[in-house]
């Protein structure tokens, strides 16, 4: 009996009756705070590779040079829309939802230090990683054509059949070497810290 009264009370509410007679599906709109795929702003990319460093999905974001301008490109099938690249970018090149606004407002940053680890038992000294490394290529343009480097300023280079890390502090943690290694011998440990309020 109480149950029937409850049902009648439920269906006799003015709100229920009005919505019953004027039933209408709300239009499908994406709310402005939705964290969508990152989009480019008109800021200039400085090729610091912070977005590639932080990206948790494999090969979701790559910084490429098109028409003489560096620009991050997102592979939509790989991107998981986490929005970390937007927070990591120091130049505000990317935007999505509320992230860029709150990042500026609250001065949020993600900073990392990196450590390159080469498993010498797996490494066959092919030098793919040294050629692929975008920082290496900036430092020694000879790598682009010849594939071998004689410079001591590069991050790593193949010397007497073994890959040696020379300047670990120059690494930006972009993982390009990991992806180009055919044996999975090189790993970059990225020790990232989530900070607030400018430099520590």
């Amino acid at each position: 009996m109480l149950s029937i009264i409850n049902y009648i009370r439920e269906f006799l509410r003015p709100h229920w009756i009005t919505t019953f007679f004027t039933a209408k599906t709300a239009p499908l709109v994406t709310p402005p705070h939705f964290r969508d795929f990152p989009e480019l702003t008109d800021k200039e990319c400085t090729h610091c590779l912070a977005c590639m460093m932080i990206c948790p999905a494999p090969e979701a974001i790559t910084v490429v040079k098109r028409e003489e301008i560096w620009r991050p490109e997102i592979t939509k099938g790989h991107c998981i829309r986490c929005g970390l690249c937007i927070e990591a970018c120091p130049e505000d090149v990317l935007t999505s939802g509320r992230i860029l606004a709150y990042k500026k407002e609250e001065e949020l940053t993600l900073q990392g230090t990196f450590h390159i680890e080469i498993d010498q038992s797996k490494c066959m000294g092919c030098g793919n990683c040294t050629v692929a490394c975008p920082v290496n290529r900036e430092i020694d343009p000879a790598l682009r054509s010849s594939g071998t480097s004689t410079s001591d300023e590069v991050i790593m280079r193949v010397d007497t059949g073994q890959n040696k890390v020379l300047h670990e502090e120059k690494c930006t943690g972009c993982k390009t070497c990991e992806e180009s290694c055919s044996n999975g011998a090189i790993r970059v440990a990225r020790i990232v810290e989530a900070l607030q309020g400018g430099e520590k």
């Binding site: 705070h33 939705f34 964290r35 829309r81 999505s96 992230i99 810290e193 989530a194």
Partner: peptide, 13 residues
């Protein structure tokens, strides 16, 4: 910013 898989919590905050 997301309905599921919010990724809201990071170390320290």
């Amino acid at each position: 910013g997301a309905r599921v898989t919010c990724a809201f919590i990071v170390p320290g905050g």
